[in-house]
Structures are given as structure tokens and as C-alpha cells.
């Protein structure tokens, strides 16, 4: 096992664009690698992606492995898992981090099974124990329990890490490192799935709940789709994303991309508004990472109040217009 060295980050790209989570993970990897006395290696797989290599070095990587091929222009499980597994076998890293994105969570278990590696999905914390093993920390049971895991025997120790948990460091453009291009033998026959079309459902101009610093989320208490203009007005004032509980999304009042909770998005905003949301565990599983939770609900016993930093018991149709007016007033005084 001692032959395994290096903290690796799979730096996901989407249509040649680098995902932000890659920067977050390179920062984290730097920290782990310094404690272990090992190198940080960033892995780029895709097409037209070499241009990200330098930025990853500035971010903290000592080396960047680039697998660039037209056949990798779109993410496919078969091609990407082959490329990543080949790199791992050739270089034997001790740790491999991937973003817990849709494709990261598709790729990681496939690679883990190819190489017989332990894997923990969707970690929210990473530490080293006294044996210098990677402690993989994550919630389970809708966030009601936290679990710490290790992979004692298999190397690399592999995890997917939830986006937005770690903050990327300021890039340092005086850093230098190696960029190594790796050629892979890859043929179209290796790829058994065909992507016929990619459809974007994000509504033009709608801020994604994943990335927003502030999320204004409505539940069944909003009653009618027309009433959504109230939370939308609040969101506009705060540059916030508009989210919904599952029932609201199931009714088609908001697109599925805006659903917060266990079967929707897990989010980590600075500020979260729960308006007319009861606070079912499947909903709160998605918001436990929020720094501040504000709840407005007319039921004083609604479970959401157990989690909220500031709760107002009242009718949201009376309270929300006042909140909007007050924020406008404060903002106009600035």
C-alpha cells in the first residue's frame, strides 16, 4: 500500500467547461497532501480541456494529467471510467476525490468496481486519522445521523464530495507544475450508450438553487401558483434563487431543477427561507447545510421551527409583504 502516493482530484468538465467543484476539491486535496507529504495531481478528461490545466496548478495542483480526445467530448460512463481506471492503475494514487455531481456519482462506483475499491459517496467532510487514513464523513438517514468511514485496505481511498462544502482558495499564479498529456486507445465500440440529445430545463433567467447564496423556497402553504410572485419578489431583492418543496414541483409550479430536498437538490446557501413549508425530513435533508434558516409558517408546531434560526408564526400572505417592504426600506437607506 505504501507504493500508493498522491492525492488525486478528478476535475470534472461539462462540455469543456470546468466545474467549480474541481477548484474546491483541489484546495482540499492540497491541504490533505501537505499533511501526508504527497503531491496533488489533477486529472482532466474530456475534449478541448487542456486550457484548464494551468488554472488547476494555480489552485494547488503539482501535476495535471490530461486525457484529451474527441471521443470524450460528451461524458459517457464507458469511456470515462476506462480512462480514469487506466490512469489509476498506471500511477497508483493514495486518495482520489471526485465531485458528487450527477456524472461524478455515475463514474465513481463504476471505477471503484473495476479496481475493487471502497467508495463513499457524497461526503461533506474529509480528515486524516492518526494512521493517516482518509476519514470520510457524510450524513445518512436524511441527515439525522453523521457517519465516519474509512477504506482500510483498498487504494486509492475514493470518495465523491458534495459540491459547495469546501471553499476554493485564491488561485496563486506564481505556482508552477507539470502538465502531462496521456494518450488512450479508445474506440467508439468501447462506448455502449449513445447520447441522442441534451435538454436544458433550467428556465431562462432562473437562478439555480445549487449555486445561489440565498434561496427563497415555497411549500404547499403558497396555495396557488399565482401566489409565487410574492416569493419571487423577495428573491429578486436578494439576488436569490426561487425554490420549492416537492409538492410544488410535482404540481408543475416550478421546474424540477428548483426542488429542494432528498429527491431534489441538497443546497448550502448562506440564507434559506422556508415559506409555508412544514419541514418534513425529506425536505430538511436538503437544507441542513444552510448557514441561516428563516421559516414562516402559520402552524406553531411545524417541525421546520425546530431547525430554523429565525421563525415567524403567522400567515405568510400577511408576513411576507411586510418582510419585502422592510427589506426595500433598509436597502433604500443604504
Amino acid at each position: 500500500m505504501s507504493e500508493h502516493k498522491g492525492v488525486w482530484v478528478y476535475c470534472e468538465t461539462d462540455e469543456s467547461r470546468l466545474k467549480r467543484v474541481a477548484l474546491e476539491l483541489v484546495t482540499t486535496a492540497r491541504d490533505l497532501a501537505d499533511k501526508l507529504g504527497e503531491e496533488v495531481v489533477a486529472v482532466l478528461i474530456g475534449n478541448d480541456i487542456e486550457r484548464h490545466a494551468e488554472g488547476l496548478i494555480w489552485q494547488g495542483a503539482d501535476k495535471v494529467l490530461v486525457v484529451n480526445d474527441e471521443i470524450l467530448a460528451k461524458y459517457t460512463t464507458d469511456a470515462y471510467s476506462k480512462a480514469l481506471a487506466n490512469l489509476i492503475e498506471a500511477h497508483k494514487p493514495s486518495i482520489l476525490l471526485l465531485g458528487a455531481t450527477t456524472n461524478g456519482r455515475d463514474l465513481a462506483p463504476r471505477v471503484a468496481a473495476k479496481l475493487k475499491l471502497g467508495l463513499t459517496a457524497d461526503c461533506t467532510g474529509l480528515e486524516l486519522n492518526d494512521k493517516k487514513q482518509l476519514l470520510q464523513i457524510r450524513p445518512a438517514f436524511s441527515g439525522k445521523v453523521m457517519v465516519e468511514l474509512v477504506s482500510p485496505e483498498s487504494r486509492p481511498q475514493m470518495t465523491t464530495v458534495r459540491p459547495n462544502v469546501f471553499k476554493p482558495a485564491e488561485p496563486d499564479d506564481s505556482r508552477t507544475g507539470d502538465i502531462e498529456h496521456v494518450k488512450m486507445q479508445m474506440s467508439p465500440d468501447d462506448i455502449r450508450t449513445e447520447i441522442l440529445e441534451k435538454v436544458k430545463e433550467v428556465v431562462e433567467g432562473m437562478i439555480s438553487v445549487d449555486e445561489a447564496e440565498v434561496v427563497v423556497c415555497s411549500g404547499r402553504g403558497i396555495k396557488e401558483p399565482e401566489n409565487l410572485k410574492l416569493p419571487e419578489e423577495l428573491a429578486k431583492l436578494l439576488d436569490a434563487a426561487v425554490g420549492g418543496s416537492r409538492p410544488i414541483v410535482d404540481l408543475g409550479w416550478l421546474p424540477p431543477t428548483q426542488q429542494v430536498g432528498q429527491s431534489g437538490r441538497t443546497i448550502l446557501p448562506n440564507l434559506y427561507f422556508a415559506l409555508g413549508i412544514s419541514g418534513a425530513v425529506q425536505h430538511t435533508a436538503g437544507i441542513r447545510g444552510a448557514s441561516l434558516i428563516v421559516a414562516v409558517n402559520k402552524d406553531p408546531d411545524a417541525p421546520i421551527f425546530e431547525l430554523s434560526d429565525f421563525g415567524i408564526v403567522g400567515d405568510l400572505f400577511e408576513v411576507l409583504p411586510e418582510i419585502i417592504a422592510e427589506i426595500k426600506r433598509v436597502q433604500s437607506e443604504r
Binding site: S154, D309, F310
Partner: peptide, 23 residues
């Protein structure tokens, strides 16, 4: 199993939020 649980523990509690009733 290739992954082993070291420890399970309760998540950090949010402490004493403010709750306004009848305001």
C-alpha cells in the same frame, strides 16, 4: 466490505433559534 464505519454520531444541533409568536 471495503468501507468500514468508524463512528456514527448525531449532527450538530442548531442552537436556540428565535421564534416569534403572536407578533
Amino acid at each position: 466490505a471495503l468501507s468500514k464505519t468508524v463512528r456514527v454520531f448525531p449532527p450538530e444541533k442548531r442552537k436556540g433559534g428565535i421564534k416569534l409568536e403572536d407578533v
